[in-house]
């Protein structure tokens, strides 16, 4: 009898083909109040992290941008303003509930003409080779089952000299900050999740998945291995979050 391959789902080990399903359940559960929770959990700082990501993307008029795990669409909205009517933004998310919230919100904000939505798995991106000038994935990579496969897919659909930006929780540089952050993540975060969405487990998973995500140097190495060049990362808020950047040669 062959042993099934496993991967982590937070601190729990699950069969590889079950992780996507479990992650999907988490995001189906939190989709409706995802932005509100983000604001509460980060004290609004997630907006600054995303703003900096947009600055570093250097996206301009006419560019094609893929916003993977774009969820509720806050990055896509800004990109749609920057690329103008000649450009294109694709809001992609594997989770239908998150994508629905994002699409409705962007429609309500009057974004039309230069934006499309796609329910897509980051590991198997349904786009032709060399399509996008820029790809962003904000707080999504840690939920992907096979990150190497996803990085290879992103490299494939980027145009040569196109830019990948990965915004993700990471490892705090200061041990004291790390201790405080741990206390916050494992005690306060699930409590807030319970109070606001009546779902402590989903927020416990979010905290655990952050700890299981590769640290700054490891992720940079994975990008190098995937074939990206000029890879670098920038710590933000003491390393609680890091922005990784790489270019397709």
């Amino acid at each position: 009898m062959s042993e099934k391959k496993t991967t982590h789902f937070g601190f729990e080990q699950v069969e590889v083909d079950k992780k996507a399903e479990r992650v999907a359940d988490v995001f189906h559960s939190v989709a409706g109040k995802y932005d509100l929770m983000n604001d509460l959990m980060s004290g609004g700082v997630h907006r600054l992290w995303k703003r900096y990501t947009i600055e570093k993307s250097a996206v301009r008029t006419g560019h094609k941008v893929l916003d993977i795990a774009g969820g509720t669409g806050d990055l896509s909205y800004q990109f749609a303003q920057k690329v103008g009517p000649e450009g294109l933004v694709v809001l992609a998310d594997i989770n239908a509930s998150m994508l629905n919230v994002g699409r409705d919100r962007l429609t309500d904000r009057g974004v039309a003409g230069n934006l499309t939505c796609a329910q897509a798995d980051a590991q198997y991106l349904p786009f032709p080779d060399n399509t996008f000038d820029c790809i962003t994935i904000a707080f999504g990579l840690r939920n992907v089952t096979d990150k190497d496969l996803a990085l290879a897919a992103m490299l494939r659909v980027l145009k040569p000299s196109g830019r990948l930006l990965i915004l993700e929780f990471s490892k705090p540089a200061n041990p004291l900050l790390e201790k405080a952050y741990d206390t916050y993540s494992f005690s306060l975060l699930p409590l807030m999740g319970k109070l606001i969405t009546n779902d402590a487990d989903s927020y416990r998973y979010l905290a655990e998945s952050i700890r299981m995500h590769p640290d700054q140097k490891t992720l940079q190495g994975m990008m190098d291995n995937a074939g990206f060049v000029m890879t670098e990362f920038q710590n933000m808020t003491g390393g609680i979050v890091a922005l990784h950047m790489g270019v397709k040669p």
Binding site: V45, L48, W49, R51, E55, Q234, T237
Partner: peptide
């Protein structure tokens, strides 16, 4: 390089 969160906050304000 300074933490970009602080300068981004100032510029946003």
């Amino acid at each position: 390089m300074a933490d970009p969160t602080a300068i981004t906050a100032v510029l946003t304000a």
